Amino acid sequence: MIDLVLLGCGGNVPMPNRNLSSLFINYRGKKILIDCGEGTQVSMRMKNCGFKDIDLILITHLHGDHIIGLIGLLSTMGNSGKVNDLTIVGPRGIIEAMKAIKVLIEYLPYNLKIIEDPKDTFSLEDHPILKELEISTLELDHSTECLGYSLYFKRTPKFNVQKAKKNNVPQVLWNKLQKTDSIFYDRKMYTSDMVLGGDRKGIKLSFITDTRFLLTIPDFIRDSDLFVCEGMYGDDMDISKAVKNKHMTFNEAASLASLGNVKQLLLTHFSPSLENPHAYLNNATRVFPNTIIGEDRLSLSLNYED
């Protein structure tokens, strides 16, 4: 199961009822953030998310409403006792941006690993848990370099008793081979594929903001269990603003969800002028019925299929 909290659903300017862009993900006790706008720490404290075990932060782009919250968060993580490495992924320019941020932070008790503008699907191979996560990126169409993210949480194959017996694997190794690739025991090598069944479907989460409507997005988000997408403007009549400012309307986000065959759409990143996003929900649901309007600190869980 993957637990999520939409920490902030606002765009551009923080509002009394809206923090800026950030999504919190809890995967097997390890924490991931996508974006870190103003108010991220406040929502994390209100939801008891915890700071120490954040090991990965994915930044979509370098506009302030998506990154300014990092300055305080990095310090808080250190003050919370974090000593393990923190990986930050972002578009072109993230290395220079982090150098600037570190000027304002005197000391961190953990190492920062910066990955700039990754082009292919990648994993954190040296991380004991997050190595099971496949991360893909997509270049978006915004007023600055911007990345969309797709996260695939792989699922460990199920233990197969019949297979273990057929391969004459000693019972003392059954549990161990579910957690490691190979074991040399009693002068013989045993591997995990000798006791595990076939692959099982994992969970796919996609996150797209800020951008114009792109025909490359549906394939990128294809079959996502949850598609988190910007809906800067609720009214279809605001399409000219969306084009000018390189954002999307509810209708456009819903069209992407439909074309990508996702299970659920969560709209976020609302314009400060959009006081009541719920009033425009029909502009999305008439295209993609399973749409949710985001709210600060909205919690969701994604479950593996049986």
Rank of each mutant, 00 (worst) to 15 (best):
H142W: 07
I59G: 10
H127I: 06
L33I: 07
I54P: 09
R297Y: 02
E145S: 11
D35R: 11
L70R: 10
I34Q: 09
I115Y: 00
H278L: 11
I292H: 13
K204Y: 00
R286D: 13
L147R: 12
L300D: 13
R187C: 07
P14S: 06
K99G: 06
P272L: 01
L112W: 02
V13D: 06
H269D: 09
D306C: 11
Y27N: 10
L298V: 11
A257C: 11
K47Q: 13
P170F: 02
F227S: 15
T209D: 00
S143V: 13
I217Y: 04
I292K: 15
K102D: 13
D219S: 11
D219V: 08
D306E: 14
F288R: 02
N12I: 15
P14C: 02
S273P: 05
G198N: 13
R155P: 08
T156P: 07
G197R: 14
N168V: 07
R212Y: 00
V89K: 07
K204W: 02
T60H: 14
E295S: 13
K102L: 15
I129F: 02
I239L: 14
I88A: 08
L177D: 00
R200W: 00
A164W: 02
L70G: 05
D55I: 01
G231F: 03
I135D: 00
D225M: 06
L151F: 09
N175E: 12
V83T: 12
S80Q: 07
L214V: 01
K163Q: 10
D235N: 15
I68Y: 10
M98F: 08
T144F: 02
T180W: 00
K158N: 05
N160L: 02
A242D: 07
L138K: 08
K52Q: 09
V42I: 15
S123M: 04
N19T: 00
L73A: 00
